[in-house]
Amino acid sequence: MYEELPDEELFGPGDFSDSGELEVDNIMNEAESHENDAQLTPDPLISSNSEPQKTVFPSIPGLFLYKNLLTQEQQNKLVDAIINEGYFERPESNQAMCFGTLPPFIMRVVDIIENIPSIFPDEIKHRKPLFDQSIINVYKPGDGINSHVDLDRFEDGIVIISLLSACAMKFIPAYLINKELGYSDTSTATNPNEVIPVILRPGDVLAMSGPARYDWAHGIEATKIDIIGDERIVRKVRVSITLRKMKEIQVLNQCADN
């Protein structure tokens, strides 16, 4: 099911900065530039006996970054499928939501994620379904999203898939910005003012659970260039897919409303 909702229905009020207009041609042009550099490789699922290389963040338990988890061919297929669905044909559209049984092109990625042995604790990893809600966002250069903790209507265990362009996502202790929303006031950060940047590149998959999901807020600065250490990232059009699972009571309420 596809649904467009106001931004405040997704993360809380005022999260997106400078959403602006976007034409689907921009996505297609960006995808074509990546496809020209693609190396055609098989599209296997990850073996359940293997653990892809991951980056851990000692200050943020439960935050794992799987670099280049998706091959270039897999990324191209995802972008092609998003374009073919027509989510962003209207210039003003920059976000699409799916509930329940997710589209086949997203389920292909879910299959990959389910086969990563330690991406989530067992109680999350073995739930059925692993995800039943997705958000597809398109970011123009300069777009950002304010720091936030995903709403409590969603269960623990969230994944972000990054496509087309790199950017820096910043994590800060959640209580600094949204203590009034009822999330934990206790951060696992040793420094309460700590800011941890995470560079997301095309094909990367970021997983959040436990403290990473509840005690830390994440956001993307509204800028066209990210400076992280000695690295300078010039943003292009970026697509992200966020995967979550709604709490059972939310599913029941939604069915009743329908």
Score class of each variant (00 low, 15 high):
residue 58 P to F: 05
residue 63 L to Y: 10
residue 91 P to I: 07
residue 48 S to C: 15
residue 89 E to L: 15
residue 34 H to V: 03
residue 65 L to T: 05
residue 63 L to Q: 03
residue 44 P to N: 08
residue 80 D to T: 14
residue 40 L to S: 13
residue 83 I to K: 12
residue 53 Q to E: 15
residue 69 L to R: 06
residue 29 N to Q: 13
residue 99 F to P: 04
residue 68 N to Y: 10
residue 58 P to I: 09
residue 45 L to A: 11
residue 93 S to E: 05
residue 98 C to T: 14
residue 71 T to V: 05
residue 33 S to D: 07
residue 98 C to R: 12
residue 34 H to A: 07
residue 68 N to S: 13
residue 40 L to G: 06
residue 60 I to F: 06
residue 33 S to N: 01
residue 62 G to R: 09
residue 58 P to R: 05
residue 34 H to K: 13
residue 66 Y to E: 02
residue 97 M to G: 14
residue 97 M to L: 13
residue 50 S to E: 14
residue 99 F to K: 14
residue 43 D to P: 03
residue 55 T to K: 11
residue 30 E to P: 00
residue 42 P to Y: 08
residue 62 G to Q: 09
residue 63 L to R: 09
residue 93 S to L: 09
residue 81 A to Y: 12
residue 67 K to M: 04
residue 98 C to A: 01
residue 96 A to Q: 02
residue 46 I to D: 10
residue 92 E to N: 15
residue 57 F to E: 04
residue 43 D to F: 06
residue 49 N to G: 10
residue 68 N to V: 04
residue 53 Q to C: 07
residue 61 P to S: 08
residue 76 N to F: 13
residue 55 T to Y: 08
residue 26 N to Q: 14
residue 90 R to C: 08
residue 29 N to H: 00
residue 75 Q to A: 09
residue 88 F to L: 05
residue 37 D to K: 14
residue 36 N to L: 14
residue 32 E to G: 01
residue 95 Q to A: 15
residue 54 K to T: 11
residue 89 E to S: 15
residue 82 I to L: 12
residue 50 S to P: 02
residue 68 N to K: 10
residue 72 Q to A: 14
residue 60 I to A: 01
residue 67 K to T: 13
residue 67 K to Y: 06
residue 31 A to N: 08
residue 35 E to S: 11
residue 33 S to V: 00
residue 62 G to K: 02
residue 83 I to R: 08
residue 50 S to Q: 11
residue 70 L to R: 04
residue 61 P to M: 01
residue 46 I to C: 04
residue 73 E to K: 06
residue 44 P to L: 02
residue 78 L to T: 08
residue 85 E to D: 11
residue 78 L to F: 00
residue 48 S to G: 15
residue 98 C to F: 03
residue 59 S to W: 00
residue 69 L to F: 00
residue 81 A to N: 11
residue 38 A to T: 12
residue 66 Y to T: 01
residue 65 L to W: 08
residue 60 I to Y: 09
residue 48 S to L: 14
residue 86 G to N: 08
residue 61 P to F: 02
residue 41 T to M: 00
residue 43 D to N: 10
residue 89 E to V: 11
residue 40 L to N: 10
residue 80 D to E: 15
residue 94 N to T: 14
residue 77 K to G: 11
residue 36 N to K: 15
residue 46 I to F: 10
residue 47 S to L: 09
residue 92 E to W: 04
residue 91 P to S: 01
residue 88 F to V: 04
residue 92 E to Q: 12
residue 95 Q to P: 07
residue 96 A to Y: 05
residue 95 Q to K: 15
residue 40 L to E: 09
residue 77 K to H: 12
residue 32 E to P: 03
residue 54 K to S: 14
residue 27 I to L: 01
residue 54 K to W: 10
residue 54 K to Y: 14
residue 55 T to M: 02
residue 94 N to I: 11
residue 91 P to N: 00
